[in-house]
Design a protein around this nucleic acid. Structure first.
Length: 338
DNA sequence: GAGTTTGAAACT
DNA sequence: CAGTTTCAAACTC
């Protein structure tokens, strides 16, 4: 590996603190929202902040005594917005703060901040890559490490030089290295679409090692015997668990849980939308359960209200089963929905 | 929690 | 460009 090992300094928290807490809100004439990181005033420098291009980001340069600037990846702007940085409102008067040097925020390889920037990223645990290789999920997504568990992290403003070199190296190898691997499908397609697919060999794309979730040419497709086996095993286990616990669970709490549970638990991080778990088979099985419950109520001579209650309770149990299965599938999303 | 497995990324 | 190595995440025990 040719990555220079400069020092063993560990940088856990990479978001730099504002140098001057009294920094003012600044605006340019640009219509878009601006973001400025406060910097120590440098009177000799009087940048023209009235003609900044869209997306301008100001940041103190790392390790240079605030002389210079840093080019921030687009995604980091969002990270900054989630931090304690100054967001500049549009069209307010800016008189020019001495010492703030400017640099147009260059799109990260032409990539505009994506949805990925709006959700919390799973912290990386890189130890050897300095978070400057595509092994690092943060780096690969054009983001600075933030609240990660990495060691020797160079994916931060303090190592902007090294970081830029690493970005360039990655782009030299692959100009599309930082483009989202999983984007939308062709026009008219709602499905996510992996840009190149996977090369899974041993896992058959049935485990989370597979990153494409597309599963073309792999074993993880609807009619795959391997997938069916996995699904049946999961279903059977789930039914047993549900049978043991369902009686203890009130329908009201189930519905409440359904309504309050944050869907992003399934959605975030490349998860699946809830409806993707309600397959035809699941719907049929649910209907069968409800019908069976209705028959049972009829046999027992239950009143109409009691029968409805039994059916509703059964429906609640079915929903819980689906939810729990979906939760399990989150750890194996490809097996669930490719 | 440690060790193993896996596949992408990086390297030769 | 194919083969090998490195890496971090997923997985297993």
């Amino acid at each position: 590996m040719s990555v220079p090992l400069v020092s063993a300094q560990t940088v856990k928290q990479v978001v730099p603190k504002p140098i001057n807490p009294t920094s003012q809100i600044v605006t340019t004439s640009q219509p878009q929202q601006r973001l400025i990181m406060p910097a120590t005033p440098l009177p000799q420098i009087q940048p023209n902040l009235t003609n900044l291009p869209p997306g301008t980001v100001l940041a103190p340069a790392p390790g240079t005594g605030n002389v210079g600037y840093a080019v921030l990846p687009a995604q980091y702007v969002t990270q900054l917005q989630q931090s304690s940085y100054v967001s500049i409102a549009s069209n307010s008067n800016f008189t020019g703060t001495p010492g703030i040097q400017t640099q147009a925020r260059l799109p990260f390889n032409g990539i505009i901040p994506s949805e990925s920037a709006s959700r919390p990223r799973k912290p990386c645990n890189c130890t050897k890559s300095l978070c400057l290789k595509l092994y690092c999920d943060c780096f690969a997504n054009g983001e600075f490490c933030n609240n990660c568990n990495c060691t020797n992290c160079y994916n931060n403003l303090e190592h902007e030089n090294e970081r830029q070199k690493a970005i360039k190296a990655c782009l030299d190898r692959n100009p599309e290295a930082f483009k989202p691997k999983i984007g939308k499908g062709k026009e008219g397609e709602s499905d996510r679409r992996h840009s190149k697919g996977c090369n899974c060999k041993r896992s058959g794309c049935l485990k989370n090692y597979c990153e494409c979730y597309e599963c073309i040419g792999c074993k993880n497709f609807e009619e795959s015997p391997e997938r069916k086996t996995l699904m049946h095993l999961a279903d059977a286990a789930e039914v047993r668990v549900q049978q043991q616990t369902a009686a203890k669970t009130k329908l009201s709490s189930q519905i409440s849980d359904l309504l309050t549970r944050p869907a992003p638990a399934l959605n975030s991080g490349g998860g699946k939308l809830p409806f993707t778990f309600v397959t035809k088979e699941v719907a049929e099985a649910t209907c069968n359960c409800l019908l069976a419950q209705a028959e049972q109520a009829d046999k027992k001579g239950k009143s109409k209200a009691a029968a409805e209650r039994m059916i509703l309770e059964e429906f609640g149990r079915c929903l819980m089963s689906v939810i729990n299965s979906a939760g399990k599938a989150k750890s194996d999303p490809c097996a669930m929905n490719c």
